[in-house]
Write a protein that binds this DNA or RNA. Structure first.
Lengths: 120, 120
DNA sequence: CAAACACTTGCACGTTTGTTCAAATGTATG
DNA sequence: CATACATTTGAACAAACGTGCAAGTGTTTG
């Protein structure tokens, strides 16, 4: 086992330098890792995940979305904003109503990115 | 447009009943939706996502993991526990060291579940 | 043009969560 | 058996987050 000879504290104590180097490469592209994390984070919350799952089927207005998932309109709207910012959903205005749907292009891009990472 | 005739407050005001019903079905399986959210939540945090990405390559001990991602050993260990509980990673003890790696079976199960939902 | 309505937004609150430090556990080794 | 070391764990703290209310915007309709 190769060990660093310094390291007075239990830190920066590396056991297998080569592995560590390879590992670092895997996460070197900070922006991409951050982007992945953001998408996962967005889907990792119940209200938002429900919204996305529901919208995979069809376009819905905020009101119906809220009804379908038994949530407050305000809550749904707040979370829609986050999904909108991340371009996971898109919207279409029709009078005073707003219809939301999945932004397929961006979702597919996201899935691609994740696959690239997991299937290397 | 069909509307409920009650609804004094701006609530439970349903515009398209059929759509709402279909939407409800999509998220009817509460357990499964929760399970999906948990996995996404786990991957939606930078430290944990990095751990997973790094482990996709090779097995690493806690010490090297921490070194590779420039994080505190304690922090890594805490997050490893969560990934372990969710069976996303598995571990192997060798003396005083613990080597972590991806628990492929469970990861694949997870991916399947997500695909089922997204490709219906 | 006032009232109703769909939706958004700002704020405040309580909760959850990630991190760090310090101490504990368990294992090798001299 | 004491020391060194890898890892885990608990406690404490700050930061981030989701939610609901109330107020605001913009649009339709009588």
């Amino acid at each position: 086992m190769k060990k660093e000879t310094n390291a007075p504290v239990c830190e920066v104590e590396i056991v297998d330098g080569k592995k560590v180097e390879k590992a670092k490469e895997k996460i070197a592209d900070t922006d991409q890792v951050l982007e992945m994390a953001d998408i996962f984070k967005l889907l990792g919350e119940l209200t938002r995940l429900k919204i996305v799952l529901v919208l995979l089927n069809s376009e819905l207005c905020v009101c119906d979305l809220a009804a379908a998932m038994d949530a407050n309109v305000s809550t749904v709207s707040h979370q829609l904003r986050l999904l909108r910012n991340a371009k996971l959903v898109k919207y279409r205005k029709e009078g005073k109503m707003v219809f939301y749907s999945i932004d397929d292009n961006h979702i597919n891009d996201a899935i691609k990115k994740i696959k690239e990472h997991t299937e290397e």
